[in-house]
Design a protein around this nucleic acid. Structure first.
Lengths: 242, 242
DNA sequence: CGTAGGCTTGAATATGGTCAATGGTTGTGG
DNA sequence: CCACAACCATTGACCATATTCAAGCCTACG
């Protein structure tokens, strides 16, 4: 049985800006159902025109593009609280694919209801745009990382980003977070080969900066890792939940 | 004297989805003025909270991030018809800087009027989100390019993208478009060193695939260049103009 | 138990980076 | 009008980071 938005566990996270009663009421009507998928399921396919959007309730996945020459680029990781399918909803076509890595539970919304949201619930429409702006920000950071940082820095940056984001939705504890991806996924996200990714992961582990073992990531000292990555300890801005 | 949106030359471009009369009327009131800047002017500064957004009427610029270690990553190029400043408007802080490369003329909007737009003009709010989705799409393409393509492919990809986009707003002719950036700008956009960028540009020129000389880019045969870049001749989707 | 998927490791290679220097053009001041 | 500085494009030599190729290993699972 689906969880009502009223009892949505994500709403309890400080990471998300609280909803008003009116917003909550709207979300309950906006949510048309729940979808449960297994690892490997393709949620959205590049080039398709899905009638639905999803918010991740639990589980993780990847968004990726397949290149003409067969390569795969992971655009980013899909984590609890993330909304996906906006491109299809607004532009009429997905520009990347989305696949489940673990078992996932997703809230399902209808694309057809979006326009009604803009007319009748401008506050939620505003939040939708806010989410898009946050996404744009993250993609810009990714571009800067792929363009300017070497392998150790890229991996350190990804670790920090994922760790913080997962903690923000209450996963893991102070030092360990679940990270159920393959090394190949991280390699494809960072534009590195699997071999080099593997060796760099090992180096970070040997240096005691970060260990990603058995699907769990531990970072003993964020500051040290951040120093290696060359990133400021940027705070994680709160954002709306949709 | 500022041009009225009524006579805005950009509106004539097929690239942009036509406005309704109501939308046009709103835009005329939404636009608070025009700004003219010289090359080198910083329009928006990373970390700042600008009260304004801009649409480029003419001229070009770059959006970039400065890294802790001094590097610069150009996120993308700012071309006529582009809207910038949304991050600041929605999230309250710019996550990158924006600088004019040439002389520019910009339409100025007030951040404070955005919320009113969501309440009173849902069609325009929807278009704003649409623009954000298009931006997200382009950034995703950039990530795929930085992550998966080698130097020649990156430059070929950037050439094709800029060429098509500039043609879409009526600049240049079938084979030549103005491209007033420095090689360093392109290098910073593609995550390559200046030296390697220079040599790769020369190689493409020697192969007769694309010549960027004296601030003008010419592509004799888009199909050939696209083959080298490893990209499909993806059509340029129309989008709203704000 | 045998196969498949993912992780690990070593060796050879290459793509691209760094360093260094030259030349062309423009703008400025003597 | 010339000298000089600043900026950008260009080129060569050398070096390093990361890729590719090729095995071996471990665990889960049928």
């Amino acid at each position: 049985m689906p969880v009502s938005c009223k009892n949505c566990p994500l709403r309890k996270c400080d990471y998300f800006i609280p909803m008003t009663e009116a917003e909550l009421a709207f979300m309950i009507s906006f949510k048309t159902g729940e979808m449960v998928v297994e690892p490997g399921t393709t949620l959205l396919l590049e080039g398709s025109n899905s009638p639905q959007l999803f918010t991740v309730l639990s589980g993780m996945g990847v968004r990726y593009k397949t290149l003409e020459d067969g390569g795969r680029q992971v655009i980013n990781f899909l984590l609890p609280g993330d909304l996906t399918g906006m491109q299809s909803a607004i532009m009429g076509e997905m520009k990347h694919s989305v696949e489940a890595t673990t078992n996932m539970v997703l809230c399902v919304f209808n694309r057809a209801d979006i326009w009604n949201m803009f007319k009748a619930h401008p506050d939620r429409a505003y939040d939708l745009t806010w989410i898009a702006a946050v996404e744009e920000h993250f993609l810009g950071e990714t571009i800067a990382t792929l363009g300017q940082r070497d392998a150790s820095q890229r991996i350190a940056w990804a670790y920090l980003r994922l760790h913080r984001r997962l903690r923000a939705v209450g996963l893991g504890d102070a030092h360990h977070v679940p990270l159920p991806f393959r090394q190949q996924d991280l390699a494809d996200a960072l534009g590195l080969s699997l071999v080099h990714t593997n060796k760099t992961i090992a180096r970070l582990r040997d240096m005691g900066l970060a260990a990603w073992v058995d699907g769990k990531l531990s970072i003993p000292d964020r500051a040290k890792l951040a120093a290696l990555a060359g990133v400021e300890p940027e705070p994680l801005d709160r954002r709306p939940l949709m």
